[in-house]
Amino acid sequence: MKNNIKISVIMGVYNPASQERLFRSVQSVIDQSFAEWELLLYDDGSQAPFTSLIQAAAALDPRILLLHGQQNRGLAHALNVCIRSASGSYIARMDDDDVSKPDRFQKQLDFLETHSQYQWVGSLAELVDSHGVWGIESVPETPQGRDFLWNSPYIHPSVLFRAGVLLEHGGYDPSHSVLQCEDYELFMRLHSRGNQGYNLQEPLLQYREGRDSYRKRTYRRRIREMKVRYRGFQDLGILHPGTFFYVMKPLLVGAVPASAHHSIKHWRKKKPQQMPK
């Protein structure tokens, strides 16, 4: 471990949609109360107008290492390159439009260093859009197999892993069959092999989710997710006739218009102080 780095933050970036969001995300790492980190910022073959933006983000702090891909190969490949280049004994995930609370790393590190039975730790998240924080994404404290039926019970960019668990189990699956479902596949695979994670029951991350998030979920992506669910549920021992509805869930949800889906989730997840009396 070089230069006393304890946490390696891994972030894949491709043609970032907003300079402001990218800089806010990187700045939230720089502002952490825990200082022994490095940020591996992987440019996944971005086009020319965006490369200078990513370079500017990497120049914000000397602890940021900029890595380059010659072509766009997807998030799983980007994260695997970062994992192989990481110096820390812990690996934190971040996306280029999410924001970590200043004490996130310290709280998660303290937890893992005192709870050896867990291989990673996540947290709840505040949901944000262009208007600010609009809700809370809750996840179970100690997820079990059945918690994967509806959605992944971990918020991917909120998680701090022990580096060893990712290296031992081969990191992310970069194949096209799990494209845009990389985290769901990873967590089910790790659970099926006897590993366990934990979620701190406080929001340590601001997770961006707006109306456009639903429009990105194409029919092909839903088919891939359905196949990932089938294989993952099988490995977890939770696949049977009574859970087949959950295998089909991506297609069923896809039949709901994006605007309606967004409105329903906005109502379900909105902050308690916004709830009508």
Rank of each mutant, 00 (worst) to 15 (best):
K216W: 14
G145V: 05
A125I: 08
D110P: 07
Y118N: 04
L239T: 10
E137S: 12
D95S: 09
L112T: 14
R221F: 03
G194A: 11
I64N: 01
Y198D: 05
H240M: 13
F244K: 05
E225H: 15
W120K: 06
S263V: 10
G254K: 05
L75E: 12
E36I: 00
P272M: 12
L60R: 01
G45F: 13
Q206K: 15
A163H: 15
I155H: 14
H261C: 07
R146I: 15
H68P: 02
I136M: 08
S213Y: 11
T51V: 01
R217H: 12
P140C: 12
W37F: 11
I136R: 09
K269D: 01
L167V: 08
F244G: 06
S259I: 13
K216S: 02
P49Q: 11
A17R: 14
A48V: 10
S87T: 04
V81Y: 10
Q19V: 11
S123N: 09
F105C: 11
S138P: 00
S130E: 08
Q106P: 14
K270R: 04
P157G: 01
K249M: 10
V256R: 08
D235P: 03
R211M: 02
L205D: 00
D44E: 14
I7K: 10
Q27P: 03
F161K: 00
S89A: 04
F23I: 02
I64K: 00
G132P: 00
L149E: 12
R24F: 15
P157E: 02
G194Q: 03
V9W: 10
R162P: 13
S123M: 05
V165F: 11
P272T: 12
Q70M: 04
G12Q: 05
A125T: 09
V29F: 06
C82Q: 04
A17Y: 07
L66N: 15
G88M: 01
S158T: 04
R162G: 01
A92M: 15
L239G: 09
V165D: 08
N195E: 09
H169C: 15
G74H: 13
